[in-house]
Simulated scan of single mutants.
Amino acid sequence: MSPTPEQRRAARHQLGTGSSAPAARRGPSGGRKKPITVDAIISTAFAIVEAEGYDALTMRRVAAALETGPSSLYAHVVNKEDLDELLIGRLCAGIDLPEPDPAAWRQQIAGVCTQLRDQYLRYPGISRAAFAAAPSNLDTLRVGEGMLAILLAGGIDPQTAAWALDSLSLYVNAYSLEVSLANSRIGRGDDGWVVSRDELLRRFAALPDTFPRTKRYAVELTAGTVHDRFDFTIGLMIDGLPGSR
């Protein structure tokens, strides 16, 4: 008897994402099309997100792109949440984890966060797939293990390091999602919600006097690029960890 999707998922968690055995195609197209595998499903899903955004990603949409029916996907992927986990795992597989260095741990943990950010920003909105998901994919867990090792090398006590890992990951996910949403609005020409710095300064200057600080510090409030703010916040979070050295 062929393994169930749940059994395939359990095997992936033990052995990595890997390729699964191809599913046989049914219908007149027969074997003339590429076989359905986990890797083919993941690659197709990424192509959809890259072209249309994460909101467009559904099991039915992936099946249509592969010129098959959703039932063919369920031979390999349990459901949409399982697909999300595979996508985040594939992105995490591309993260380079340094050997923890007590003398450079701050730069190392910030560098891993930056890599995660850049991976997420390649695919609009995909960081949503990482929210509210308990990590079980080995590639995702590998990144968590590496980040935890860096924090511990910096002299952070285990409980603080564990919560810092959660906080840093949550910020990277949220930041990436916000940037993706802003870029999507810009792409749609939705200028009413995404404005330039000059326009924002003009709006602040036009505020009534009941906003004295916003008017006075408008330049500071609007300074820097979004990545400048990312670097600032990550640095603030790292430097604020108790027990760091």
Results as ranks from 00 to 15, higher is better:
R245F: 15
A104R: 15
G111W: 02
A218W: 00
R90Q: 05
G154H: 04
K33S: 13
G240E: 10
T225Y: 00
K34N: 13
L138Q: 04
P98Y: 05
G187H: 12
S20K: 06
F204Q: 12
L200V: 14
P35Q: 04
A65L: 05
H76W: 01
W163E: 15
A174K: 04
S180M: 06
L86Y: 02
L121W: 03
R128M: 03
L200H: 09
L207S: 07
A56I: 06
A162K: 11
I234Q: 00
V195L: 13
G31H: 10
D84N: 14
Q115V: 05
T160H: 11
A47Q: 10
A133N: 12
P70N: 04
A218Q: 12
K80N: 05
I234W: 00
R106S: 07
G30P: 08
A149Q: 05
T225M: 00
P3L: 15
R216Y: 06
F46N: 06
A205Q: 10
Q14V: 14
T37S: 14
G94Q: 14
E85I: 03
C92S: 02
L168V: 11
R245W: 13
G30E: 11
Y54L: 02
G154I: 05
L241C: 06
V38D: 00
G187Y: 07
A47V: 08
A132V: 09
M147I: 10
A11W: 13
S127V: 01
F46V: 02
P158G: 07
Q119P: 02
L221E: 14
I234A: 00
D209V: 02
A45G: 09
L152D: 08
G69F: 08
R106Y: 02
L151C: 03
I150W: 02
Y217M: 10
R9I: 05
A205D: 15
I95R: 01
R122A: 12
H76V: 04
T17F: 02
S196G: 11
P5L: 03
L152N: 07
A56Q: 03
R128V: 01
L181A: 14
S19L: 08
L86W: 02
F232A: 02
G125N: 02
I234V: 13
T17L: 07
D157T: 14
